[in-house]
Simulated scan of single mutants.
Amino acid sequence: MSTGQAVHMNQGEGEASYARNSTLQSGEQNRMRPVIEEAVKCLIKSTKSDGKIAIADLGCSSGPKALALVSCAVDAIFQHYRADREQVPPELSVFLNDLPDNDFNVVAKSLVAFHESDQRIGLVTGGIVPGSFYKRLFARSSLHLIFASSSVHWLSRAPEDLRTNGIPMYDGDDDLRQARGPLVLEAYARQFKNDLNLFLNLRAQELVSAGQMVISVPGRCASDGTCHKNLAWDAVACVLNDMATREVIDREKLNSFYIPIHAPSDVELREIIEVEGSFKINKMVVHEPKSGMDKSSITPKMIALGGRAVFEPMLVQHFGKSDQIGEEFVRTMEQHLSTGRSEFPPPGLFLLCVSLTKMV
Score class of each variant (00 low, 15 high):
residue 343 E to N: 15
residue 120 R to S: 07
residue 15 E to F: 13
residue 48 K to M: 02
residue 134 Y to K: 13
residue 142 S to P: 07
residue 158 A to R: 01
residue 187 A to D: 02
residue 310 V to H: 00
residue 359 M to Y: 13
residue 336 H to M: 06
residue 68 A to Q: 08
residue 183 L to S: 01
residue 165 N to V: 02
residue 126 G to Y: 04
residue 26 S to E: 12
residue 300 P to S: 05
residue 168 P to F: 04
residue 290 K to L: 10
residue 333 M to R: 01
residue 198 L to R: 10
residue 223 S to G: 05
residue 57 D to R: 14
residue 346 P to K: 09
residue 96 L to V: 12
residue 284 M to Q: 14
residue 111 L to T: 15
residue 79 Q to R: 14
residue 307 G to P: 00
residue 266 D to V: 01
residue 300 P to N: 04
residue 224 D to N: 13
residue 349 L to K: 03
residue 248 V to Q: 10
residue 291 S to K: 10
residue 164 T to D: 07
residue 313 P to W: 03
residue 313 P to M: 04
residue 313 P to E: 04
residue 202 L to S: 09
residue 260 P to S: 04
residue 20 R to S: 15
residue 238 C to T: 12
residue 230 N to E: 00
residue 40 V to G: 06
residue 81 Y to I: 12
residue 157 R to E: 02
residue 142 S to F: 04
residue 44 I to R: 06
residue 159 P to D: 03
residue 17 S to H: 01
residue 31 R to T: 08
residue 143 L to D: 05
residue 336 H to A: 09
residue 276 E to Y: 06
residue 168 P to I: 05
residue 325 I to Q: 02
residue 313 P to I: 03
residue 148 A to F: 00
residue 71 S to Q: 14
residue 213 M to A: 04
residue 262 H to A: 01
residue 226 T to L: 10
residue 16 A to S: 12
residue 250 D to T: 14
residue 168 P to E: 05
residue 56 A to E: 06
residue 252 E to W: 07
residue 146 I to Y: 01
residue 216 S to Y: 07
residue 230 N to S: 01
residue 318 H to P: 08
residue 60 C to V: 10
residue 259 I to H: 00
residue 225 G to M: 11
residue 39 A to Y: 06
residue 37 E to A: 07
residue 311 F to G: 00
residue 46 S to K: 14
residue 195 D to A: 07
residue 2 S to Y: 06
residue 54 A to S: 05
